[in-house]
Design a protein around this nucleic acid. Sequence first.
DNA 1: GTTGATATGTCAACGACACTGACGTATCCC
DNA 2: GGGATACGTCAGTGTCGTTGACATATCAAC
Lengths: 172, 172
Amino acid sequence: MDGRNTAGLLYLREEEIRLAMELLFYGYRDFTAGPDAILAELGMGRAHHRVLYFVGRHPGITVSELLAILRITKQSLGRVLQPLIAGGYVVQSPGRSDRRQRLLSLTPAGVALERRLFESQRALLARAFREAGGPAVEGFRKVMLGLLGPEARARLGLRASLTGARVAGKVA
Amino acid sequence: MDGRNTAGLLYLREEEIRLAMELLFYGYRDFTAGPDAILAELGMGRAHHRVLYFVGRHPGITVSELLAILRITKQSLGRVLQPLIAGGYVVQSPGRSDRRQRLLSLTPAGVALERRLFESQRALLARAFREAGGPAVEGFRKVMLGLLGPEARARLGLRASLTGARVAGKVA
DNA sequence: GTTGATATGTCAACGACACTGACGTATCCC
DNA sequence: GGGATACGTCAGTGTCGTTGACATATCAAC
C-alpha cells in the first residue's frame, strides 16, 4: 500500500473515466434526439436513419457492404430497407459487373429526408464545435478514434487524420 | 453565389460534421461492446448495466431520481430492476424521511458486477485517453459537453469543468 | 382524522429493433 | 452442370422502450 497519494490519484482517474462514460451516455442520447423526433412523425426509427445516412454517404453501396457497416443481419436490414424502398426514399439497381448485387442509392426524396435529418444534427454539432474551439474538436476526434475497434478505425482513420490536419488551424 | 471558395468551405465543414457523426456512431457501439458481452452471459442487457451504473454512482438514489436520469418509464425500469433485486445485485430500503421512497443501493455482488463492467470500459477509455494525450481529453470533454441538453449539462457541467481544470496538466 | 397528492409497483398490450434458423432464387465462376 | 455467392423472405424469439389503467402505502394539510 502506497497510502493516500496513490489512492487519491486512482480516485481522480476513476472520476475522469466515469465522467467520460456519462458524457458518452448523455451525449449520444441527446445527439440522436433531433432525428428521432423527425423520424417518429414519419413512422420511422433510428434504424431507418442509419440506412439513409450510409446509403447517402455511399451511393451504389451493396447490401453486403451496408450490412458490414451496420453490423446487423440481412433480416434486420430488410425490415427497414423495404419500407424505405416502398416509400420512395431508396432505389435498388442491379450491379453492372455482378448482377446479383442490388446497389442502393437515395432518390431525391431520400436525399431530402437525409438532409433534413442531417441538418438537425449539424446544428447541434456545429454549435458544440464553435463553443469548444478548434483544438478541442481535434482532441474530440482523437479520443473518439481511440474508442473505435479495428474495423471502424480502418474505415475512419484516414479521414480523421486528414480532416484533423487540414482543418485544425482554420476552425480555431 | 460566391463561387468555389464558399462551396469548398461548406463542403469541408460538412465532411467534418459527418466525420463526427460517424465517430459517435461507431464509438458508442464499440464502447458498449465489452459490457454487452459480459452482460449477455448473465442473461442481462444494456438496460441492466445502466441501472447498476447509476445506482452505484448514487447509492440510496430514489426510484424517481433514477427514472429522471434514465428518462424511461417506471414500467421499463421495473422490468430490469426486479431481476437485479431478485438476483441479489440491488437492494431497496425505505426512505428515512419519506417512507414511501425505496432507496436503491448495490449489494456487494452488485458492486462487484458493476466494477467488472466498469473495468472493461475503463481499459478501453484509458487507452484512448493515453494515446490521445491530456489536451485532447480536455477537448473531448468540451465537445461532448456541448452536445448535452440542459438537463444533462446541469448534471455534469460542474464536474466536467472541475475535472478539466484540475486534471488538464497532469494527464498531459 | 379524512382527504388529496405523491412515490412506487404491477398488469396488459404494443412497437421498434435486434437475433437465429431455414429455405428460395438469381447469378457467378469453374 | 454444379458449387459458391448475393440477396430476399418466412417464422419465431428476446430486449427494451412505450401507453393506459389500477393498486398500495405514505405524506401533508385542513
